[in-house]
Structure formats: structure tokens, C-alpha cells
Write a protein that binds this DNA or RNA. Structure first.
Lengths: 359, 359
DNA sequence: CTGAAAGCGCTTACAG
DNA sequence: CTGAAAGCGCTTACAG
């Protein structure tokens, strides 16, 4: 189906009666080339359908390629999909190309994926590490030369392995959510979902605890409920919230997926979210605003985080960052919607009505 | 931050007192190498933290790289995110690596993104073409040597430019949706959303028309309403459905995003989806099942399509496909949920009941 | 079983 | 302003 040989600089050079060196200079826009020559070469490049072989070029001139690798846990998760879209947009604008991998939250797959990506000589790596990643294993596979930006989580020892780190302000976010629920009059507030030993979950729980402590509340251990951060698991675990008496009247959820699952779970056991029970999420994925009731949540703006991550990495590549590892904490904010409004019967109403009764 | 030089075959060879050729053979698992030598080399590779330079290798031995490029319209769209996740999973399993780009539905960005990706010498390209893509422009940028699999849409001339094509059975899907609404007793059924001149929209409209024709119904031109396939635009355009009298009582939507926007739009004008008005979607994105009311839709299973696309491309690369371009039509199925059920379901009535009198 | 040599497609000094 | 030569990191015949 593709019998033709690749068109190379040598072909263009031969056709123009020039050397490869000159053709190369035209490609690099070297001003020393005579305008007429340049035009002739350009025409021939176009005529023969030449396509630049960036690998060969970067092999010769030494520097890494212009690819940046991105490894996330799960691309089908909207949080990571939007993050990846942001990374992609910023990289494309800077003329870089995106090498993508995903780990499905498995350290083994992560090693395999990284090993494969790294062989393509990326200029840098943006990594949202799988749970239980260690600096040692990661560095073994990435080598000492690859600039890495960790996103969203620290490593298993709580550190960042001397790499740059883009963090979400998880503690502050969970604190905001908890304080909002306290302000609504709730006293028995659960923390629902996530795996205790993931760094982000630990930080969010810490913020939750702080807010409760400030209000003079000692959380009942039964208010802390773990579950995988998926909608399905959250829906399944919902009854655990009501296992104790008195049961919590509100829950700070680990993330939006969990919160959306909880909304479904509540409906299934006949409770009205936003009325009988208040729910907050974390992330503000696109769907949060369209849930019913619309989800009060913490906006992390994953797309903006993606842009930010890409820009940090590009700055690192250009040597614009200090030599020591650099941690950036992205701030988050509270987005109040109907899932925490106490007003009666606003839950399933049209936006107009909900706004009216909230006033 | 990274002062160290890259470790190469020559370094390993020198440290072992061997030639580069022998070390290379160890890497390629060539059985002619003595087991002791092999072990020594392996240990040294590990000790020095050698990382294989696949670009240099494929430069030498001629074949393209093991990267496959994927270009979609918008990664933040769950349909494409799930598709990309499927492509990624299948490629990773086969030891390939994914180069990702997105076009934002712009032909210009598509040209730029492709130009950039192609320079990395991918083994193949999976492309969901932006609207108004033409075979001529695409071939100019991709060259004649790159195997391409088109996904989801034909090109502007309706063709596939001699490339492989993975299609969704749009016509059959829209027919199923329309027939379902007819079976529910609806006679005035709109086709809502999408751009008329996109191939997928054209095909879906055709299926819709066929089903109506079979039922002896001539669609009112006012039943065909265009809008950008986003939730926001669909919500905005909702009133257009009720501009005529008599208005339609149901709508086949171009896709789930449009259908979800329509659900919101209906709520806003005081109508009860699944009760006053029936809605079908297309795609069955994760959110469809969780909408309220849950969305009756056409399952396209984007993740499975991604796996399928990757496998088709790998088969093409292994020469397992006939030389002529190959079209695969993925079948779709109807997923019945509450958005088209009649009035008996009480679950979702509470919201609208309050506004019922206003309707 | 191992090594010396050529070469993939490009770029970079260095001459001229 | 243009060209000849060397070399990036690897692999592949070909000798031995």
C-alpha cells in the first residue's frame, strides 16, 4: 500500500543541485542562504512532499525531542481528560507534541508505560503517579536526566523525589467544603470516599478535620468512610453512611465522582439530596453543574491545571526555573449549588426556581 | 539540574570490554550471544541505568517508529476521551506508544497538529477528522506513506480518501431511536442538534427520515433544528422546538451532549422530560445513565471503538488487511431509559410538579 | 560467539 | 553564500 521510499534531504539536495547542508539551512531558516536558493529549495520540498524527520535531527544535534510525555491514571475520568486537554493545548501552542500513557492506577502498568514512553526520548514528563508509586522505582525507569513534574499526588513516602510538583490545595478545599456545611447548620458531617493512604485523600481529610476542630466538633470515627473514587462504588457504599445512629446529615465527598454516586445512592434509599442530606464534591468536573441537584463542589479547574502543568514544564526546559525542585500549589474555590441548599424542595427544581428560593 | 551525559551502547560496551554490536544483540535478545556475556551486559545496562533510544534504532533499521498518532476533535468530550482511552489500552498492550493531538474542530489547527505529529514518524494515524477536512489537504500533510484510519466521519466530499475507515452505524442508530419513539405513540418527532453538513449528522438524519417514512409520516421542515453539538447550545436552542404549533412531542437528538442540554432546556421552560416530552440521545456516554431522567440513547461504546480502531491499525501495520482501503461499520444498539418512558414513573416528577401549573 | 564497518536522516562547525 | 566531512545512537550484514 505504501511502496514509495521516504523523501530525504538528500533527495531535495540532488534535485536542486545543492548539498544537504544548504537544504538543512533552508529548513532551519538560516539567513545565510541566498533568497533565490531558499525559494528553489522551498518549492522542491513542497513538490516532493518532504516531511521533516525530527528524530534524526534531534539525534544529531543532541537535545531531547520536542515531545512531552503525560501519564495519567485514567483518561476516561473527566478530571484527567480535561487536564490532558489543557496540557495538549499548551504544548501544541508551543510547538511540542504529546506522548500519552495511562496506568489504570497500577504501579506495574505505570512502570511498563513509562519504560515505553521514555524510549521515545521525551523532553520532559508530566506524571500523575499511581497510588503507591515510589521515587526509587520511578527514577530507575526515568533515568536521572528526564525533568519530571508530578501532578496531583505525592509519592508513597509523602515526598516528591526531588522533582517539580504541581499540587492542588486539597486541605484548603476540603476545609472550605466543611466550613460551608457547618455554616448551613450541619454538625454531624461525614468524609465519604477515597482511599485513606492516597496523599490527596489524606490532605482532604486533614482539611475536613481542621474545620471540624475549629467548630469544636470531634468527628465520630464512623463518619470516615473509604471507597474507591468511582461513582459506582460510592453508590454502593451509600448505606454505610446511615449505619450509625445518629447518622450524619451531610458528607464532604472525596471527589465529584464519589459525590455523584452518592446522589444516586441517596435517591435509591429514598433520601433527597439537598434537602434530607447535604453533599459536597471536589473537582467541579463539567457534570457537577448538571447533576440533579446541581453539585456544590470545590473547583479545581482541571483544564487550567493542565495548561499550568505544561507551562511549568516548558519553563523548566527553558531553564527559567530555579535549579531546586519547585512546588506550585494551585488554589481552589468553593462553588455553591443546590446539593447543599437547605431550602425545602429546591432539590429537583428548575434553576430559576432554585435561585428564587435561595434568595 | 541534569548535568549527566546520556548513557549509550558505547558506554556499556566499553565497561564490558565488548563491542557495541554485541551489546545491541543482547538488547535484541539475539540468541547467538553467549549466556555469560549476556548476563554481564544485562547487569551493566542495569547498573548504568541505560535507556534505549528507539529513535536511533528505527532510524537505522529503516522501519517507522512504534508510535501511533491519534487526533481527535476534543479530548474533553467524554466520547473522545473514552475512545482515546480504548486506543491507548490496545496500543499499550501491543507495546506501541500513543502520540496525541486535538483539533478543536478546526481544519487549520488540524493541519498544524498533523504536521507536528507526522514529524515524529508515527507508524500510523487514527484520525477523527475535523469538519470540512478534505482528502487533498490531509494527504499533502501526511504524505503518501502513512497508513491512516479515519474514525467517525467521512471527509468533506463524502469519501474516505483511499484510507481505512471505522464508521458508526449512524443511520441504523437514528432509525432505532426514531422507531422507539414511534412505538411510544409519538407522531411529531423532531431531529434536534448537529450541523447538517457533517457526515454523521447527515447519516443520522437519513435514518430518522427513513423511520418516519416507514410510518407514513412526512416530517415538517420545522422539526429539523440545527445547533452546535454541545450541551450549552442545545439548552439555548430548546425553545425553537416549540416555535410551531402543533409542536413536536419528542426529539431524536444528534448526540448525548445535545440531549442532556435539551433536558436542561426543557426543565427551564417547565416541561417534564420523559413525561411531557420524550428525548433520545446518541453515544451513551457515561453520564447518560446518570442524567435525570436517565437518557434513552444509542450505545456506541466509544471505548470499544477505540480498542477496535487500534486493532484495525495494528492489523494494517502487520499487513493483515487487504491492500485496498477497508471500511468497518460498528453496530450500535438502543438503550431504553426513563427519558422516553411515559408518565407512570414518579421518580422524576417532583421537580416539575411544582411548575406544572405554569406549563 | 564476537567485532569492524557502513549507514539511517539529519546538523554543525569549518573551509572556501 | 555554499559544500565536504564528521557524528548523534543505534543495527545489520559480513568476516573471523
Amino acid at each position: 500500500m505504501t511502496p514509495t521510499r521516504r523523501v530525504t534531504l538528500a533527495d531535495i539536495a540532488a534535485a536542486c543541485g545543492l548539498s544537504k547542508a544548504t537544504v538543512s539551512m533552508v529548513l532551519r531558516d538560516n539567513p545565510r542562504v541566498h533568497p533565490d536558493t531558499r525559494a528553489r529549495v522551498r518549492a522542491e520540498l513542497e513538490r516532493q512532499g518532504y516531511v521533516y524527520h525530527r528524530g534524526a535531527a534531534s539525534l544529531r544535534h543532541g537535545g531531547a525531542s520536542n515531545a512531552v510525555a503525560l501519564v495519567v491514571n485514567d483518561l476516561a475520568n473527566p478530571f484527567f481528560a480535561e487536564f490532558a486537554a489543557g496540557v495538549d493545548a499548551a504544548l501544541a501552542e508551543a510547538g511540542h507534541v504529546l506522548l500519552l500513557g495511562s496506568t489504570g492506577e497500577s504501579v506495574e502498568r505505570q512502570q511498563a508505560v513509562l519504560a515505553s514512553l521514555v524510549e521515545h526520548d521525551p523532553a520532559a514528563l508530566i506524571l500523575s503517579p499511581a497510588e503507591h508509586s515510589t521515587a526509587t522505582r520511578l527514577r530507575r525507569i526515568c533515568g536521572p536526566r528526564l525533568p519530571v513534574l508530578l501532578f496531583n499526588r505525592t509519592l508513597d513516602d509523602g515526598g516528591t523525589g526531588d522533582w517539580d510538583y504541581l499540587a492542588l490545595d486539597n486541605r484548603a478545599g476540603a476545609r472550605l467544603a466543611t466550613e460551608h456545611l457547618l455554616a448551613q447548620g450541619h454538625r454531624a458531617i461525614a468524609f465519604f470516599g477515597g482511599h485513606r493512604d492516597s496523599s490527596s485523600c489524606g490532605e482532604r481529610r486533614a482539611g475536613y478535620r481542621e474545620a471540624l476542630a475549629d467548630a469544636g466538633i470531634a468527628p465520630d470515627p464512623g463518619w470516615l468512610i473509604e471507597c474507591a473514587p468511582t461513582r459506582l462504588e460510592a453508590a454502593r457504599q451509600t448505606p454505610a453512611l446511615f449505619a450509625r445512629d445518629p447518622a450524619p446529615t451531610a458528607a464532604v465527598c472525596y471527589n465529584d465522582a464519589v459525590a455523584l454516586g452518592l446522589l444516586a445512592g441517596l435517591a435509591r434509599c429514598g433520601r433527597r439530596a439537598g434537602h434530607d442530606f447535604a453533599v459536597t464534591g471536589f473537582d467541579d468536573i463539567a457534570e457537577a453543574a448538571f447533576a440533579s441537584p446541581p453539585l456544590t463542589t470545590i473547583t479545581t479547574d482541571p483544564r487550567a491545571r493542565g495548561l499550568q502543568a505544561a507551562r511549568l514544564v516548558l519553563a523548566r526546559l527553558r531553564g527559567e526555573l530555579p535549579d531546586s525542585p519547585h512546588t506550585t500549589v494551585a488554589s481552589v474555590s468553593l462553588q455553591i449549588r443546590a446539593s447543599t441548599s437547605a431550602a425545602s424542595d429546591t432539590t429537583f427544581q428548575s434553576p430559576a426556581r432554585a435561585r428564587g428560593s435561595a434568595a
